[in-house]
């Protein structure tokens, strides 16, 4: 019996090796490159130059600006949608939800192309409002990722809590503020994770909407094409650091079910 047990667990060896080779090793490599210079000497110059150059700090600030703005827009649009879908008694709730997350399965470059054509008709020249266009593009791209986790948390909210609040004399607004909203925070946090990080790095949306300002993603690309792997790795490492802080913070509050929302609709 012991031998059988051993054999079954061996099944994970190929995948384990794969992860070590192609997930762990790349991390080691970028850590190495980030802290060395061209001659292979240990150095902190890449780190200090990132935080002392106005260009790179500007890029970081611009990325954060876009990410914060996109996350807020997504949240403001997604929350009412998710709330209405989860709390009301529509007959074909599942179908309506599908309609809202379906764009997720259409190639995002094609969706942004479509958006670009519409924006060009409305604005005439896209160059006049680069930040606004980027914001619209990102929101359009990431909205489904915010709707899904919030819907998941609201959907399983215990109705008796709302009834109790009503019985105890709370009106609708108060019930929402004191009961519904606080209980939906884990879903909101999962949604923020899904939207915030991609919108800091998705430089394709900016590219396609003719916004030539750099964000963190494009900065990596620029260093990469210039064969400056040391500085590129440092940017990658800084992004990884942001992600790490984010996940450590969110692991505590996020809703585990809602977290896997990328596959939420497919998972059955």
């Amino acid at each position: 019996m012991n031998r059988l047990h051993f054999q079954r667990s061996q099944l994970c060896i190929p995948y384990g090796l794969f992860l070590v080779c192609f997930v762990f090793a790349p991390l080691v490599v970028i850590i190495y490159y980030a802290f060395t210079d061209g001659e292979g000497r240990l150095t902190l110059a890449n780190l200090t130059s990132f935080f002392s150059s106005p260009n790179t700090i500007g890029t970081l600030a611009y990325s954060l600006g876009i990410a914060v703005a996109t996350t807020c827009c997504c949240l403001l649009l997604a929350y009412p949608i998710a709330y209405i879908l989860a709390r009301s008694r529509f007959k074909h709730k599942a179908v309506i939800l599908m309609v809202f997350v379906m764009p997720m399965w259409i190639n995002f470059t094609l969706r942004i192309t479509a958006l670009k054509e519409i924006l060009t008709v409305i604005e005439g020249n896209l160059a006049y409002h680069p930040f606004l266009n980027t914001l619209i593009g990102m929101t359009y791209d990431f909205l489904p990722f915010m709707i899904l986790p919030i819907y998941t948390t609201l959907e399983k909210l215990d109705n008796s809590l709302l009834e109790a609040a009503a019985d105890l004399g709370a009106d609708t607004v108060r019930t929402f503020l004191k009961v519904t909203f606080p209980l939906s925070v884990p879903g909101i946090i999962s949604g923020i994770v899904m939207v915030f990080l991609p919108s800091m790095t998705n430089y394709v949306v900016l590219d396609m909407l003719y916004n030539s300002t750099y964000i963190m993603g494009s900065l990596i690309g620029a260093y990469f094409s210039a064969y400056d792997w040391h500085n590129g790795s440092m940017i990658a490492l800084i992004l990884l650091g942001i992600i790490l802080v984010f996940t450590m913070f969110t692991n505590r509050y996020a809703d585990e079910d809602a977290g896997s929302s990328r596959g939420g609709v497919l998972g059955s």
């Binding site: 490159y33 994770v193 990080l197 990596i220 990469f224 792997w229 996940t247």
Partner: peptide, 16 residues
């Protein structure tokens, strides 16, 4: 890879 930004995954893998 699930939580990482795709650019970072791509860049690090490419460097390796």
């Amino acid at each position: 890879p699930v939580v990482n930004a795709e650019v970072v995954t791509a860049f690090s893998l490419c460097i390796l």
